[in-house]
Design a protein around this nucleic acid. Sequence first.
DNA 1: AATCCCCGCAACCGCACAAAT
DNA 2: GATTTGTGCGGTTGCGGGGAT
Length: 239
Amino acid sequence: MGRSPCCEKAHTNKGAWTKEEDERLIAYIRTHGEGCWRSLPKAAGLLRCGKSCRLRWINYLRPDLKRGNFTEEEDELIIKLHSLLGNKWSLIAGRLPGRTDNEIKNYWNTHIRRKLLSRGIDPTTHRPINEPSTTQKVTTISFAGGDHKTKDIEDQDYKMINVKAESGLSQVEDEINSSPFREQFPDLNLELRISPPSRQNYQQSHHVQDFKQSPTSMQQPIGQRQILKWSSDPRRISP
DNA sequence: AATCCCCGCAACCGCACAAAT
DNA sequence: GATTTGTGCGGTTGCGGGGAT
């Protein structure tokens, strides 16, 4: 089955957004709320594809975005979450209010990877570089003290945790909340429910509550939708 | 001052999935 | 059940700014 293109490419702008385009998008979303990205450009008078509008809003224009430099605490939280979840940037972003998946992904690739390498840690496996491949270790960093802890974990256990990280977040939580993992990393807050409270705040403060379009995905803030459960694809959450 | 090079970040692309038809 | 539509995600690209030469 074929997919129709998300927009009429011949009549859409590409590349950097202008100030005017930003203003149009902000004004439209303030009035109508987020959602129905496909029809939004036309309704807002923008010569942009819906995906482009969505991305621009989520990654740049949303008023609840923190922006600015990442703090040391954010750095370390990203490292922790990445060690458990891998490149699930949207999930990681869910634990960092005001940060977007794109921002975290970029930050990871430009800063954190280098940081881990300088610590002698493989950014993909989170294990010490040059470690014999037969010995399975999980390296985590004690962020309170700034020192490194290395824990030997049975190969099987390690794989199991990784598999669960791939298969479902609630299962990961179960795994983590159960000892001995919990005992090993008592400071690790992994209540991995995604809830961007800032978005709710935005809706309250901007009175963008009446979603005029009505696909189900638009009637709930993203965070609330994502709490519900995982589908077979870890990226997909269905009610 | 001009050019080159590198890096960071915004934006794009293709794909997967759920919901709707 | 098959197909279409809308959305979200991760990977990648390419532009622009700033430092080095």
